[in-house]
């Protein structure tokens, strides 16, 4: 069922495509950076928990690029459908499971690639990263990415064209990002907002990265990890199931 070579080649194609589509790579980095520079710069008079606002939002910004690229990569299967490449994979002798794993890993790698590029800017903000911190961050980033690429793939399997694309960006990615506490400290928000935020898996990704990079947290690390791992596993499982179901 699982064919490691096929998974590798689907992963390879996915990452190569992302790297080569410079506009996608650029916008996946530029958007979060603009937020960091302009919103962070504009609110730099604020301090959150001892750190400047810009530093405070940095882990959130990492999650923003992770989230957008992950969901987008998942949904990019629609492109494959529309431009025919999906058929090439569907008639090849590989299982849907291998195809899904390759896609999920490829999308997650692309998402991590753009986040890593943003992470290299940490020293400019005066954030010092040790090797351990980087490795820990990568684990968290991977969990977030796998969960959301799978979600994107699941959504794509129910869509037939790009028409629903903008809607997903506006009504899924944006709320998930805003609710995650990426831009504000969750301790100081109204109770109703905090309740909704706690239903958002991104919240735990942001909190985990903030714990690792800034040493500040709302939730215990164990809780963050439990939620992120469960989310990734559930999404991944539903995803493989949806892919197998398709004729």
């Amino acid at each position: 069922m699982i064919n490691p070579e096929a998974i590798y080649w689907i992963w390879y194609r996915e990452v190569l495509r992302f790297w080569r589509t410079k506009s996608r790579l650029f916008s996946s980095i530029a958007q979060p950076l603009m937020l960091l520079a302009f919103l962070g710069g504009g609110l730099s008079f604020m301090k959150v928990g001892g750190a400047s606002y810009q530093v405070f939002m940095f882990p959130g910004i990492l999650c923003m690029s992770l989230l957008t690229v992950s969901v987008m990569s998942g949904i990019s299967v629609i492109w494959d459908k529309e431009f025919g490449f999906l058929k090439e994979i569907l008639v090849s002798p590989i299982s849907r499971l291998s195809m899904f794993i390759g896609k999920a890993l490829g999308g997650a790698s692309s998402a991590m690639l753009s986040s890593i590029l943003i992470l290299t800017l940490a020293p400019l903000l005066g954030v010092k990263l040790s090797l351990i911190m980087i490795l820990q961050s990568l684990v968290i980033m991977f969990l977030v990415a796998i969960g959301f690429v799978s979600l994107g793939l699941i959504i794509a399997s129910f869509l037939d064209s790009f028409e629903g694309f903008g809607m997903i960006m506006n009504f899924l990615v944006m709320p998930l990002f805003f609710l995650s506490g990426a831009l504000f400290p969750l301790e100081q928000v109204p109770a109703w907002l905090k309740t909704i935020s706690m239903l958002d898996p991104v919240t735990y990704g942001v909190d985990a990265l903030r714990t690792i990079i800034l040493g500040e947290s709302v939730f215990p690390m164990q809780m963050n990890l439990t939620v992120l791992i469960s989310f990734a596993i559930v999404m991944f499982t539903i995803g493989t199931w949806t892919f197998n179901r398709q004729e």
């Binding site: 190569l16 589509t21 431009f83 490449f85």
Partner: peptide, 27 residues
């Protein structure tokens, strides 16, 4: 082997890359 009526190549990949991916998928 199939050549579809509508193209099914990856436009971002070169000719050789398209072929390489195919050989990988078919082992």
């Amino acid at each position: 082997g199939i050549a579809f009526q509508d193209p099914s190549l990856d436009h971002k990949l070169t000719g050789r890359e398209n072929l390489r991916v195919h050989m990988g998928l078919y082992g």
